[in-house]
Design a protein around this nucleic acid. Structure first.
Lengths: 213, 213
DNA sequence: CCGGTAATAATTATCGATAATCGAAAAAAG
DNA sequence: CTTTTTTCGATTATCGATAATTATTACCGG
Protein backbone atom coordinates (compact mmCIF):
# COMPACT_ATOMS: atom_id res chain seq x y z
CA UNK A 1 0.00 0.00 0.00
CA UNK A 2 1.90 3.04 -1.26
CA UNK A 3 1.16 6.71 -0.73
CA UNK A 4 -2.44 7.60 -1.14
CA UNK A 5 -2.03 11.37 -0.96
CA UNK A 6 -2.31 12.94 -4.38
CA UNK A 7 -0.43 16.18 -4.81
CA UNK A 8 -1.12 18.41 -7.74
CA UNK A 9 0.88 21.50 -8.50
CA UNK A 10 -0.89 24.81 -8.98
CA UNK A 11 0.21 25.04 -12.59
CA UNK A 12 -1.32 21.66 -13.37
CA UNK A 13 -4.55 22.65 -11.67
CA UNK A 14 -4.71 25.89 -13.61
CA UNK A 15 -4.07 24.01 -16.84
CA UNK A 16 -6.84 21.52 -16.20
CA UNK A 17 -9.29 24.26 -15.24
CA UNK A 18 -8.55 26.22 -18.39
CA UNK A 19 -8.94 23.15 -20.60
CA UNK A 20 -12.24 22.31 -18.93
CA UNK A 21 -13.46 25.85 -19.53
CA UNK A 22 -12.57 25.60 -23.19
CA UNK A 23 -14.34 22.32 -23.58
CA UNK A 24 -17.40 23.60 -21.68
CA UNK A 25 -17.51 26.72 -23.81
CA UNK A 26 -16.95 29.06 -20.83
CA UNK A 27 -13.77 30.06 -22.61
CA UNK A 28 -14.70 30.57 -26.23
CA UNK A 29 -12.44 30.77 -29.27
CA UNK A 30 -10.95 34.24 -29.45
CA UNK A 31 -11.36 34.94 -25.72
CA UNK A 32 -8.38 36.59 -24.05
CA UNK A 33 -6.79 34.77 -21.16
CA UNK A 34 -5.58 37.46 -18.81
CA UNK A 35 -2.92 36.12 -16.52
CA UNK A 36 -3.52 38.29 -13.46
CA UNK A 37 -7.27 37.91 -13.74
CA UNK A 38 -7.08 34.15 -13.90
CA UNK A 39 -4.55 34.19 -11.06
CA UNK A 40 -6.90 36.25 -8.91
CA UNK A 41 -9.93 34.09 -9.70
CA UNK A 42 -8.10 30.90 -8.91
CA UNK A 43 -6.32 32.25 -5.86
CA UNK A 44 -2.76 31.92 -7.10
CA UNK A 45 0.00 34.13 -8.39
CA UNK A 46 0.84 34.94 -11.99
CA UNK A 47 3.64 32.43 -12.44
CA UNK A 48 1.68 29.16 -12.35
CA UNK A 49 -0.85 30.74 -14.70
CA UNK A 50 1.90 31.63 -17.13
CA UNK A 51 3.27 28.10 -16.93
CA UNK A 52 -0.16 26.63 -17.60
CA UNK A 53 -0.57 28.91 -20.59
CA UNK A 54 2.80 27.75 -21.94
CA UNK A 55 1.48 24.20 -21.96
CA UNK A 56 -1.74 25.17 -23.67
CA UNK A 57 0.19 27.16 -26.22
CA UNK A 58 2.47 24.23 -26.98
CA UNK A 59 -0.58 22.00 -27.34
CA UNK A 60 -1.93 24.44 -29.88
CA UNK A 61 -5.05 25.27 -27.89
CA UNK A 62 -4.02 28.85 -27.28
CA UNK A 63 -2.47 31.49 -29.50
CA UNK A 64 0.07 33.71 -27.85
CA UNK A 65 1.45 37.03 -29.03
CA UNK A 66 4.45 38.34 -27.08
CA UNK A 67 3.52 41.32 -24.91
CA UNK A 68 -0.08 41.16 -26.09
CA UNK A 69 -1.15 37.94 -24.46
CA UNK A 70 -2.89 34.65 -24.99
CA UNK A 71 -6.18 33.97 -26.70
CA UNK A 72 -8.15 30.80 -27.04
CA UNK A 73 -7.29 29.48 -30.45
CA UNK A 74 -9.88 30.02 -33.14
CA UNK A 75 -9.58 27.19 -35.59
CA UNK A 76 -10.57 28.13 -39.10
CA UNK A 77 -12.21 25.75 -41.50
CA UNK A 78 -8.97 24.69 -43.07
CA UNK A 79 -7.38 23.90 -39.71
CA UNK A 80 -10.31 21.76 -38.69
CA UNK A 81 -10.18 19.90 -41.95
CA UNK A 82 -6.47 19.35 -41.40
CA UNK A 83 -7.07 17.97 -37.94
CA UNK A 84 -9.63 15.51 -39.27
CA UNK A 85 -7.20 14.38 -41.93
CA UNK A 86 -4.57 13.70 -39.29
CA UNK A 87 -7.12 11.91 -37.20
CA UNK A 88 -8.04 9.77 -40.17
CA UNK A 89 -4.39 8.95 -40.86
CA UNK A 90 -3.88 7.80 -37.29
CA UNK A 91 -7.07 5.72 -37.19
CA UNK A 92 -6.38 4.03 -40.50
CA UNK A 93 -2.84 3.16 -39.52
CA UNK A 94 -4.02 1.91 -36.15
CA UNK A 95 -6.37 -0.40 -38.01
CA UNK A 96 -3.36 -1.74 -39.94
CA UNK A 97 -1.37 -2.25 -36.73
CA UNK A 98 -3.87 -3.96 -34.43
CA UNK A 99 -2.20 -6.97 -32.89
CA UNK A 100 -4.07 -8.90 -30.25
CA UNK A 101 -6.84 -6.66 -29.10
CA UNK A 102 -9.57 -7.35 -31.62
CA UNK A 103 -12.06 -8.75 -29.14
CA UNK A 104 -11.48 -6.01 -26.59
CA UNK A 105 -11.87 -3.42 -29.32
CA UNK A 106 -15.14 -4.86 -30.57
CA UNK A 107 -16.48 -4.96 -27.04
CA UNK A 108 -15.68 -1.30 -26.55
CA UNK A 109 -17.07 -0.37 -29.95
CA UNK A 110 -20.34 -2.14 -29.15
CA UNK A 111 -20.56 -0.25 -25.90
CA UNK A 112 -20.06 3.13 -27.51
CA UNK A 113 -22.39 2.20 -30.33
CA UNK A 114 -25.14 1.57 -27.79
CA UNK A 115 -24.46 4.97 -26.19
CA UNK A 116 -24.58 6.62 -29.61
CA UNK A 117 -27.86 4.92 -30.38
CA UNK A 118 -29.38 6.09 -27.12
CA UNK A 119 -28.11 9.63 -27.75
CA UNK A 120 -29.71 9.55 -31.18
CA UNK A 121 -33.08 8.64 -29.69
CA UNK A 122 -32.78 11.47 -27.17
CA UNK A 123 -31.49 13.79 -29.90
CA UNK A 124 -28.65 14.59 -27.51
CA UNK A 125 -25.73 15.78 -29.68
CA UNK A 126 -23.41 16.18 -26.72
CA UNK A 127 -23.75 12.62 -25.59
CA UNK A 128 -23.53 11.45 -29.16
CA UNK A 129 -20.30 13.32 -29.76
CA UNK A 130 -18.81 11.95 -26.58
CA UNK A 131 -19.62 8.36 -27.49
CA UNK A 132 -18.43 8.96 -31.04
CA UNK A 133 -15.09 10.21 -29.74
CA UNK A 134 -14.73 7.21 -27.44
CA UNK A 135 -15.54 4.98 -30.39
CA UNK A 136 -12.75 6.41 -32.49
CA UNK A 137 -10.37 6.59 -29.57
CA UNK A 138 -10.85 2.87 -28.96
CA UNK A 139 -9.69 2.17 -32.49
CA UNK A 140 -6.49 4.12 -32.01
CA UNK A 141 -5.93 2.65 -28.55
CA UNK A 142 -6.23 -0.88 -29.89
CA UNK A 143 -2.90 -0.73 -31.73
CA UNK A 144 -1.15 -0.19 -28.38
CA UNK A 145 0.93 2.74 -29.55
CA UNK A 146 0.84 5.44 -26.87
CA UNK A 147 2.50 7.99 -29.10
CA UNK A 148 -0.23 7.50 -31.69
CA UNK A 149 -2.93 7.74 -29.07
CA UNK A 150 -1.63 10.88 -27.39
CA UNK A 151 -1.25 12.54 -30.75
CA UNK A 152 -4.81 11.61 -31.65
CA UNK A 153 -5.97 13.02 -28.31
CA UNK A 154 -4.11 16.27 -28.75
CA UNK A 155 -6.56 17.08 -31.57
CA UNK A 156 -9.49 17.22 -29.21
CA UNK A 157 -9.97 20.97 -29.39
CA UNK A 158 -10.39 20.99 -33.15
CA UNK A 159 -12.87 18.18 -32.81
CA UNK A 160 -14.68 20.11 -30.09
CA UNK A 161 -15.11 23.09 -32.39
CA UNK A 162 -16.93 21.17 -35.06
CA UNK A 163 -19.05 19.44 -32.45
CA UNK A 164 -20.13 22.85 -31.18
CA UNK A 165 -20.71 24.50 -34.53
CA UNK A 166 -22.46 21.66 -36.23
CA UNK A 167 -24.35 20.56 -33.16
CA UNK A 168 -27.69 22.05 -34.08
CA UNK A 169 -27.78 20.72 -37.62
CA UNK A 170 -25.99 17.41 -37.20
CA UNK A 171 -28.07 14.50 -38.47
CA UNK A 172 -27.30 12.13 -35.63
CA UNK A 173 -29.25 9.24 -37.07
CA UNK A 174 -27.34 9.33 -40.34
CA UNK A 175 -23.96 9.57 -38.66
CA UNK A 176 -24.91 6.80 -36.27
CA UNK A 177 -25.66 4.50 -39.19
CA UNK A 178 -22.09 4.81 -40.42
CA UNK A 179 -20.84 3.00 -37.35
CA UNK A 180 -22.44 -0.49 -37.11
CA UNK A 181 -20.76 -1.68 -40.34
CA UNK A 182 -17.43 -0.51 -38.97
CA UNK A 183 -17.98 -2.55 -35.84
CA UNK A 184 -18.87 -5.57 -37.95
CA UNK A 185 -15.69 -5.21 -39.99
CA UNK A 186 -13.65 -5.18 -36.78
CA UNK A 187 -15.66 -8.14 -35.50
CA UNK A 188 -14.66 -10.02 -38.69
CA UNK A 189 -11.05 -8.85 -38.21
CA UNK A 190 -11.12 -7.45 -41.72
CA UNK A 191 -8.58 -4.64 -41.76
CA UNK A 192 -9.34 -3.74 -45.35
CA UNK A 193 -13.05 -3.50 -44.85
CA UNK A 194 -12.68 -1.54 -41.64
CA UNK A 195 -10.29 0.88 -43.36
CA UNK A 196 -12.62 1.32 -46.29
CA UNK A 197 -15.57 2.04 -44.03
CA UNK A 198 -13.57 4.47 -41.91
CA UNK A 199 -12.51 6.30 -45.04
CA UNK A 200 -16.13 6.47 -46.09
CA UNK A 201 -17.08 7.81 -42.66
CA UNK A 202 -14.52 10.56 -42.94
CA UNK A 203 -15.57 11.40 -46.47
CA UNK A 204 -19.13 11.95 -45.32
CA UNK A 205 -17.94 13.96 -42.32
CA UNK A 206 -15.95 16.21 -44.62
CA UNK A 207 -19.24 17.08 -46.27
CA UNK A 208 -20.40 18.64 -43.03
CA UNK A 209 -17.47 20.90 -42.45
CA UNK A 210 -17.46 21.89 -46.07
CA UNK A 211 -20.76 23.57 -45.22
CA UNK A 212 -19.23 25.56 -42.39
CA UNK A 213 -18.90 29.28 -42.76
CA UNK B 1 8.80 47.74 -45.42
CA UNK B 2 7.61 46.68 -41.97
CA UNK B 3 9.56 46.41 -38.73
CA UNK B 4 12.90 44.84 -39.12
CA UNK B 5 13.72 44.49 -35.43
CA UNK B 6 13.24 40.96 -34.25
CA UNK B 7 12.30 40.62 -30.62
CA UNK B 8 12.56 37.29 -28.91
CA UNK B 9 11.45 36.66 -25.39
CA UNK B 10 13.85 35.12 -22.93
CA UNK B 11 11.72 32.02 -22.52
CA UNK B 12 11.77 31.42 -26.27
CA UNK B 13 15.53 31.84 -26.36
CA UNK B 14 16.00 29.43 -23.48
CA UNK B 15 13.74 26.93 -25.21
CA UNK B 16 15.67 27.12 -28.46
CA UNK B 17 19.01 26.80 -26.69
CA UNK B 18 17.87 23.73 -24.78
CA UNK B 19 16.51 22.08 -27.92
CA UNK B 20 19.75 22.78 -29.76
CA UNK B 21 21.72 21.24 -26.90
CA UNK B 22 19.58 18.13 -27.03
CA UNK B 23 20.01 17.78 -30.75
CA UNK B 24 23.77 18.42 -30.51
CA UNK B 25 24.11 15.86 -27.74
CA UNK B 26 25.34 18.42 -25.17
CA UNK B 27 22.23 17.54 -23.25
CA UNK B 28 21.96 13.78 -23.30
CA UNK B 29 18.97 11.58 -22.50
CA UNK B 30 18.64 11.28 -18.75
CA UNK B 31 20.51 14.54 -18.01
CA UNK B 32 18.97 16.74 -15.34
CA UNK B 33 17.98 20.24 -16.33
CA UNK B 34 18.51 22.36 -13.24
CA UNK B 35 16.54 25.55 -13.46
CA UNK B 36 18.79 27.88 -11.45
CA UNK B 37 21.91 26.53 -13.10
CA UNK B 38 20.54 27.08 -16.58
CA UNK B 39 19.27 30.48 -15.51
CA UNK B 40 22.72 31.45 -14.27
CA UNK B 41 24.48 30.15 -17.37
CA UNK B 42 22.15 31.97 -19.69
CA UNK B 43 22.01 35.16 -17.64
CA UNK B 44 18.32 35.12 -16.80
CA UNK B 45 16.11 34.37 -13.84
CA UNK B 46 14.39 31.12 -12.99
CA UNK B 47 10.97 31.97 -14.40
CA UNK B 48 11.75 32.02 -18.14
CA UNK B 49 13.67 28.77 -17.67
CA UNK B 50 10.67 27.17 -16.04
CA UNK B 51 8.45 28.38 -18.85
CA UNK B 52 10.81 26.96 -21.45
CA UNK B 53 10.84 23.64 -19.62
CA UNK B 54 7.03 23.58 -19.64
CA UNK B 55 7.11 23.80 -23.42
CA UNK B 56 9.69 21.03 -23.72
CA UNK B 57 7.70 18.89 -21.34
CA UNK B 58 4.53 19.37 -23.35
CA UNK B 59 6.43 18.50 -26.52
CA UNK B 60 7.50 15.28 -24.85
CA UNK B 61 11.21 16.06 -25.04
CA UNK B 62 11.60 16.34 -21.29
CA UNK B 63 10.28 14.28 -18.41
CA UNK B 64 9.27 16.23 -15.36
CA UNK B 65 8.64 14.97 -11.84
CA UNK B 66 7.03 17.50 -9.46
CA UNK B 67 9.52 18.74 -6.87
CA UNK B 68 12.27 16.57 -8.32
CA UNK B 69 12.81 18.31 -11.60
CA UNK B 70 13.17 17.87 -15.32
CA UNK B 71 15.29 15.36 -17.19
CA UNK B 72 15.95 14.98 -20.86
CA UNK B 73 13.60 12.28 -22.01
CA UNK B 74 15.12 8.87 -22.52
CA UNK B 75 13.14 7.13 -25.21
CA UNK B 76 13.10 3.40 -24.84
CA UNK B 77 13.00 1.03 -27.77
CA UNK B 78 9.25 0.73 -27.72
CA UNK B 79 8.76 4.50 -27.74
CA UNK B 80 11.05 4.90 -30.71
CA UNK B 81 9.23 2.20 -32.57
CA UNK B 82 5.97 3.96 -31.78
CA UNK B 83 7.27 7.23 -33.11
CA UNK B 84 8.32 5.61 -36.36
CA UNK B 85 4.90 4.03 -36.71
CA UNK B 86 3.26 7.42 -36.30
CA UNK B 87 5.69 8.92 -38.75
CA UNK B 88 4.82 6.20 -41.25
CA UNK B 89 1.09 6.82 -40.76
CA UNK B 90 1.51 10.50 -41.48
CA UNK B 91 3.72 9.97 -44.53
CA UNK B 92 1.45 7.36 -46.06
CA UNK B 93 -1.61 9.50 -45.58
CA UNK B 94 0.23 12.51 -46.99
CA UNK B 95 0.94 10.42 -50.06
CA UNK B 96 -2.80 9.76 -50.38
CA UNK B 97 -3.61 13.46 -49.99
CA UNK B 98 -1.14 15.13 -52.34
CA UNK B 99 -3.01 17.57 -54.53
CA UNK B 100 -1.03 19.80 -56.84
CA UNK B 101 2.52 19.65 -55.63
CA UNK B 102 3.84 16.56 -57.36
CA UNK B 103 6.49 18.37 -59.41
CA UNK B 104 7.69 20.48 -56.51
CA UNK B 105 7.88 17.36 -54.35
CA UNK B 106 9.90 15.42 -56.90
CA UNK B 107 12.28 18.34 -57.29
CA UNK B 108 12.87 18.44 -53.54
CA UNK B 109 13.22 14.66 -53.33
CA UNK B 110 15.85 14.70 -56.08
CA UNK B 111 17.75 17.37 -54.22
CA UNK B 112 17.79 15.46 -50.95
CA UNK B 113 18.59 12.24 -52.78
CA UNK B 114 21.71 13.88 -54.17
CA UNK B 115 22.71 15.02 -50.69
CA UNK B 116 22.13 11.54 -49.35
CA UNK B 117 24.26 10.06 -52.12
CA UNK B 118 27.09 12.47 -51.36
CA UNK B 119 26.84 11.69 -47.65
CA UNK B 120 27.06 7.99 -48.44
CA UNK B 121 30.27 8.49 -50.38
CA UNK B 122 31.74 10.49 -47.50
CA UNK B 123 30.36 7.96 -45.02
CA UNK B 124 28.91 10.91 -43.16
CA UNK B 125 25.96 9.61 -41.18
CA UNK B 126 25.06 13.01 -39.84
CA UNK B 127 24.64 14.56 -43.25
CA UNK B 128 22.86 11.47 -44.44
CA UNK B 129 20.35 11.60 -41.61
CA UNK B 130 19.72 15.26 -42.22
CA UNK B 131 19.00 14.74 -45.89
CA UNK B 132 16.93 11.68 -45.11
CA UNK B 133 14.79 13.74 -42.73
CA UNK B 134 14.34 16.48 -45.28
CA UNK B 135 13.36 13.84 -47.82
CA UNK B 136 10.58 12.50 -45.62
CA UNK B 137 9.56 15.94 -44.46
CA UNK B 138 9.04 16.96 -48.08
CA UNK B 139 6.58 14.14 -48.55
CA UNK B 140 4.51 15.26 -45.57
CA UNK B 141 4.77 18.92 -46.58
CA UNK B 142 3.47 18.15 -50.05
CA UNK B 143 -0.05 17.42 -48.86
CA UNK B 144 -0.29 21.01 -47.60
CA UNK B 145 -1.62 20.09 -44.18
CA UNK B 146 0.23 22.13 -41.56
CA UNK B 147 -1.22 20.15 -38.69
CA UNK B 148 0.12 16.95 -40.21
CA UNK B 149 3.51 18.52 -40.79
CA UNK B 150 3.89 19.96 -37.31
CA UNK B 151 2.94 16.64 -35.79
CA UNK B 152 5.46 14.87 -37.96
CA UNK B 153 8.08 17.39 -36.86
CA UNK B 154 7.25 17.02 -33.19
CA UNK B 155 8.72 13.51 -33.41
CA UNK B 156 12.18 14.79 -34.17
CA UNK B 157 13.72 13.86 -30.84
CA UNK B 158 12.80 10.22 -31.17
CA UNK B 159 14.25 10.24 -34.65
CA UNK B 160 17.38 11.92 -33.33
CA UNK B 161 17.89 9.15 -30.78
CA UNK B 162 17.99 6.41 -33.35
CA UNK B 163 20.23 8.48 -35.57
CA UNK B 164 22.68 8.77 -32.70
CA UNK B 165 22.54 5.18 -31.51
CA UNK B 166 22.63 3.52 -34.86
CA UNK B 167 25.04 5.98 -36.40
CA UNK B 168 28.12 3.85 -36.20
CA UNK B 169 26.58 0.73 -37.66
CA UNK B 170 24.11 2.22 -40.11
CA UNK B 171 24.60 0.86 -43.63
CA UNK B 172 24.17 4.14 -45.44
CA UNK B 173 24.52 2.65 -48.91
CA UNK B 174 21.73 0.17 -48.33
CA UNK B 175 19.37 2.73 -46.85
CA UNK B 176 20.18 5.15 -49.63
CA UNK B 177 19.13 2.55 -52.21
CA UNK B 178 15.63 2.45 -50.74
CA UNK B 179 15.04 6.02 -51.85
CA UNK B 180 15.44 6.31 -55.66
CA UNK B 181 12.48 4.00 -56.36
CA UNK B 182 10.37 6.12 -54.03
CA UNK B 183 11.31 9.22 -55.99
CA UNK B 184 10.43 7.46 -59.24
CA UNK B 185 7.04 6.48 -57.90
CA UNK B 186 6.33 10.10 -57.00
CA UNK B 187 7.64 11.17 -60.41
CA UNK B 188 5.08 8.80 -61.97
CA UNK B 189 2.40 10.18 -59.62
CA UNK B 190 1.68 6.64 -58.50
CA UNK B 191 0.29 6.92 -54.99
CA UNK B 192 0.00 3.17 -54.59
CA UNK B 193 3.54 2.45 -55.64
CA UNK B 194 4.92 5.26 -53.50
CA UNK B 195 2.96 3.98 -50.49
CA UNK B 196 4.15 0.45 -51.03
CA UNK B 197 7.77 1.55 -51.27
CA UNK B 198 7.47 3.75 -48.19
CA UNK B 199 6.00 0.83 -46.27
CA UNK B 200 8.92 -1.28 -47.45
CA UNK B 201 11.35 1.41 -46.33
CA UNK B 202 9.84 1.49 -42.87
CA UNK B 203 9.81 -2.28 -42.64
CA UNK B 204 13.53 -2.40 -43.30
CA UNK B 205 14.14 0.46 -40.84
CA UNK B 206 12.27 -1.44 -38.15
CA UNK B 207 14.90 -4.15 -38.58
CA UNK B 208 17.54 -1.71 -37.38
CA UNK B 209 15.85 -0.63 -34.20
CA UNK B 210 14.90 -4.21 -33.42
CA UNK B 211 18.66 -4.71 -33.01
CA UNK B 212 18.98 -1.90 -30.52
CA UNK B 213 20.30 -2.43 -26.96
C1' DC C 1 -13.83 67.34 -37.60
C1' DC C 2 -9.70 64.69 -38.56
C1' DG C 3 -5.03 63.24 -38.00
C1' DG C 4 -0.95 63.03 -35.39
C1' DT C 5 1.42 62.92 -31.05
C1' DA C 6 1.89 62.26 -26.23
C1' DA C 7 0.32 60.33 -22.04
C1' DT C 8 -1.81 56.78 -19.52
C1' DA C 9 -3.69 52.35 -18.31
C1' DA C 10 -3.75 47.56 -18.77
C1' DT C 11 -1.36 43.68 -19.24
C1' DT C 12 2.61 40.88 -20.07
C1' DA C 13 7.60 39.48 -18.91
C1' DT C 14 11.03 38.98 -15.74
C1' DC C 15 13.30 39.48 -11.37
C1' DG C 16 14.70 38.04 -6.91
C1' DA C 17 13.01 36.48 -2.50
C1' DT C 18 10.72 33.03 0.16
C1' DA C 19 8.29 28.64 0.90
C1' DA C 20 8.00 23.72 0.01
C1' DT C 21 9.74 19.24 -1.10
C1' DC C 22 12.82 15.55 -2.04
C1' DG C 23 17.10 13.04 -1.77
C1' DA C 24 21.44 12.53 0.37
C1' DA C 25 24.12 12.53 4.38
C1' DA C 26 24.62 12.11 9.20
C1' DA C 27 23.25 10.40 13.52
C1' DA C 28 20.95 7.20 16.45
C1' DA C 29 19.19 2.72 17.60
C1' DG C 30 19.24 -2.25 17.61
C1' DC D 1 27.59 -3.70 11.33
C1' DT D 2 23.02 -2.79 9.52
C1' DT D 3 18.80 -0.46 9.62
C1' DT D 4 16.02 3.36 10.78
C1' DT D 5 15.35 8.07 11.82
C1' DT D 6 16.59 12.78 11.70
C1' DT D 7 18.82 16.65 9.74
C1' DC D 8 20.51 19.34 6.11
C1' DG D 9 21.43 20.92 1.48
C1' DA D 10 19.99 21.34 -3.16
C1' DT D 11 16.54 22.25 -6.01
C1' DT D 12 11.87 23.13 -7.30
C1' DA D 13 7.39 25.94 -6.83
C1' DT D 14 5.27 30.04 -5.95
C1' DC D 15 4.91 34.72 -4.45
C1' DG D 16 4.75 39.59 -5.08
C1' DA D 17 7.27 43.46 -6.86
C1' DT D 18 9.18 45.83 -10.73
C1' DA D 19 10.27 46.53 -15.63
C1' DA D 20 8.75 46.47 -20.40
C1' DT D 21 5.45 46.73 -24.06
C1' DT D 22 1.20 47.49 -26.43
C1' DA D 23 -3.30 49.43 -26.99
C1' DT D 24 -6.25 52.99 -25.75
C1' DT D 25 -7.33 57.53 -24.51
C1' DA D 26 -6.59 62.39 -24.33
C1' DC D 27 -4.96 66.47 -26.25
C1' DC D 28 -3.43 69.69 -29.67
C1' DG D 29 -3.00 71.73 -34.15
C1' DG D 30 -4.56 72.36 -38.84
Amino acid sequence: MKKTVVRQSLKDQVKSILIDRMIDGDLAPGDRIKELQVAKELGTSQAPVREAIRCLETLGYVEHIPHVGAMVKTFNKSEIEEAYQVREALELHSTALIGELWDELVEELDEQLALMKAATKENNARKFTQADNQFHRAIVASCENDTMLSMWESLKMQVQVIATLVKASMPLDKIYLLHPPIVDAFRSKSRERASLLLKGHYKILSGYWANLK
